[in-house]
Design a protein around this nucleic acid. Structure first.
Length: 475
DNA sequence: AATGCCGGGTG
DNA sequence: CACCCGGCATT
């Protein structure tokens, strides 16, 4: 031992502690740590899985819960994924589905309300429900009519269809037991929809009205995704796996952006209006933004659109450049959805909150960014810089500095590169590989030891010297 | 085998 | 506390 120690000492020898340091905060060091434990494999709870257990925490609430259950039953036993998830993440994927649903309903409702009597409306709602639940069915129908259209369009179609059918058919809704269920659901729907102007019946909930901030904020960044290809939409196939989720999420956004899509041409002009532009959306009780966060190891990129994130993953991480539109679904594993409550409402729940607040670094970030989705990682930057060379300030969270153990020295050496060099994007180097490199390569980021070597141990940050988590090159 | 760092020990 | 290091988890 001693020998060893001495040896070390010697190496340090002359310098002793060259690092005076300002004010070391011993424990601060752990900040980054949580990551190790928390980091969850890129595997997103598969959409399927997502369906299975929903978080009720959502604002949308009542209706949602109900639906979820049903889905679980009908839909898919699949849900194979274990979902290690920490609650926060988990919530994400689910959310989108809910959102979507709600949206649909809303639209539908408003739409219908204008034309149909309550009864009808109910039926309609129920119908909607069915559609959602029975994925297969839906798919089927859809195909029959027009697969080329986006899902939403399809839904629209469905709706219309339904409506007409309703009209034709005698008002008898009590027909079967199943209807009962539906009824309930429908009722709930109504409740939730209460905001809608026309609706009279249900007790209105004052609560969430709110401004429709919901999307407005988030949407800005369309830039990336703007391309207008909604990944899922195009490749209808994606839906195949019985996991509606991905598509849904996209749907939720549609309303605002609805980029190019051929469907415009469709007669639905009016309908589309209803769906997207209508004032209704603003009323939407639940104002939340859905963002998609890249789970790739060191990338915390957050985009407001599924398509965007997918593209990001595809190009940046997966290294697939050519087929921008095409997605085999693999991207799904590398991003997760996070919901932000803009306005919040009582429930607000911090659904995703967990991510950032407490932890800090790794999980890239804080919800608040919502506004500027693009911000975070600057994908471009990452791209450009080589793994090692990254001098850029890059990530916000990275900046956080190493107060903890030392920090300080910033000796010449490091200085050259800029203090925040850590970053670690080594991952990028092996983009093509992709595959399942989910687990974070622990060592990816070079730490003091590697960077300076044992010889220059004095240059290490104190944390490293003490065998603590490196504070200088945080991952 | 090399690293990174937690948990715990020492002064 | 500051400083270290055994030892485990990861690569």
């Amino acid at each position: 031992m001693q020998a060893r120690r001495l040896a070390k000492r010697s190496s340090l020898g002359s310098r002793r502690r060259s690092v005076p340091l300002a004010a070391p905060a011993p424990d601060g060091g752990r900040a980054p740590k949580p990551e190790s434990g928390c980091w969850r494999p890129p595997r997103r709870e598969g959409s399927a899985a997502a369906l299975e257990e929903e978080e009720d925490e959502d604002v949308v609430v009542e209706v949602e819960e109900e639906e979820d259950e049903e889905e679980g039953g009908l839909g898919s036993p699949p849900a194979p994924l274990p979902i290690p998830a920490k609650g926060s993440l988990k919530a994400g994927s689910i959310k989108r589905e809910m959102t979507f649903t709600t949206f649909q309903q809303d639209d539908l409702k408003s739409d219908i309300s204008q034309k149909l009597p309550d009864q009808q409306f109910l039926l309609l709602a129920m119908r909607e429900e069915d559609l959602k639940t029975a994925d297969t069915k839906k798919t089927n129908r859809i195909h029959e009519h027009e697969k080329e259209n986006t899902r939403s369009v399809c839904l629209l179609e469905q709706k219309r269809k339904v409506v007409s059918s309703n009209i034709d058919v005698p008002p008898a809704r009590k027909s079967s037991e199943e209807l009962d269920m539906d009824k309930v659901t429908a009722a709930m729907v109504l409740t939730s929809l209460s905001t809608s102007p026309l609706v009279h019946s249900p007790p209105v909930r004052p609560n969430e009205s709110l401004n429709g901030s919901w999307k407005e904020g988030g949407f800005v960044p369309s830039s990336t995704s703007s391309s207008g290809y909604w990944s899922w939409s195009a490749p209808s196939d994606q839906s195949n796996p019985s996991t509606p989720s991905p598509p849904l999420s996209a749907d939720s956004f549609k309303p605002f952006r609805m980029p190019s899509q051929p469907d415009d041409s469709i007669d639905e002009a009016e309908t589309s209006n209803l769906l997207f532009d209508e004032p209704i959306p603003r009323k939407r009780k639940n104002s939340m933004k859905v963002m998609f966060k890249c789970l790739w190891k060191n990338c915390g990129k957050v985009l407001s659109t599924a398509a965007g994130i997918q593209k990001h993953i595809r190009t940046i991480h997966l290294g697939r450049v050519g087929e921008s539109d095409y997605s085999d679904g693999e991207e799904d594993f590398y991003y997760t959805e996070i919901r932000l409550n803009t306005d919040s409402v009582a429930d607000g729940l911090s659904s995703l909150s967990p991510v950032s607040p407490s932890l800090g670094s790794p999980p890239p970030f804080p919800t608040q960014d919502a506004n500027r989705p693009e911000t975070s990682c600057a994908k471009t930057e990452t791209k450009l810089m080589t793994p090692l060379s990254r001098s850029a300030p890059t990530n916000l969270y990275l900046v956080h500095t190493d107060h903890a153990y030392q920090v300080s020295p910033t000796h010449n050496r490091p200085a050259g590169t800029g203090e925040s060099k850590q970053q670690t994007h080594t991952v990028l180097s092996s983009p093509p590989r992709v595959s399942f490199g989910l687990r974070k390569p622990r060592g990816e980021g070079k730490k003091c030891r590697k960077v300076y070597g044992m010889e220059n141990r004095d240059m290490w940050c104190t944390a490293c010297r003490w065998k603590k988590a490196c504070q200088r090159f945080v991952d």
